[in-house]
């Protein structure tokens, strides 16, 4: 290759790289900013109509309902203020469980439930052995019980 061609190739490659980077970044912003809707917003009816968006929250304890022998599952997610019922027909991630943070992608159905086409589980940055988690949960429960007992007996 002639030097000038090489320079052109170099500039071209660098340019292509920058374009790819810019496109990916813009996509990240778009997906994250515009199509993520808080549950409290959904509760007020502020969500995009006829278009997919994301919701996220904690799976409400005791809300997971499954039809025996079917994949379809119904559960509620909460942002600790409002709740939203989600239905999903597919394989849930292994981390999906009650109390877990999840992100669902889909759109609102006519009956006010969110019909998800993808459910992703998010985990936090804490790692611990199961025994430790059990102990922590027990301590937390004991603390709560003690707190309640205190409130009952002024």
């Amino acid at each position: 290759m002639k030097p000038r061609q090489q320079r052109m190739l170099a500039v071209g490659l660098a340019g292509a790289g920058i374009v790819i980077a810019a496109v990916l970044t813009l996509q990240a912003f778009k997906e994250n900013m515009m199509f993520y809707v808080e549950i409290s917003e959904v509760a007020q009816g502020n969500y995009p109509q006829d278009r997919n968006f994301r919701v996220g929250g904690l799976v409400v304890d005791g809300s997971v309902k499954r039809q025996p022998g079917e994949l379809e599952v119904e559960f509620a997610v909460s942002d600790l203020e409002n709740e939203l019922v989600i239905t999903y027909d597919g394989i849930l991630p292994d981390l999906f469980r009650e109390g877990q943070g999840i992100i669902a992608h889909g759109q609102m159905g006519d009956d006010g439930t969110f019909v998800a086409d993808e459910v992703l589980a998010k985990h936090d940055e804490n790692y611990m052995p199961p025994e430790v988690a059990d102990t922590l949960a027990k301590h937390a429960a004991a603390k709560e019980a003690a707190l309640k007992a205190e409130q009952v007996q002024p």
């Binding site: 660098a14 790289g17 790819i20 980077a21 990240a28 778009k30 991630p93 981390l95 999906f96 589980a121």
Partner: peptide
């Protein structure tokens, strides 16, 4: 894949910025 439920999530900021770094190295 097993934990979150996806191999790749387009538009996720951490995943995307790490992928951009791969392109920066290539560039």
């Amino acid at each position: 894949r097993p934990m979150w439920g996806t191999w790749w999530e387009w538009g996720d900021p951490r995943l995307t910025s790490e992928l951009i770094m791969l392109f920066l190295y290539f560039g």
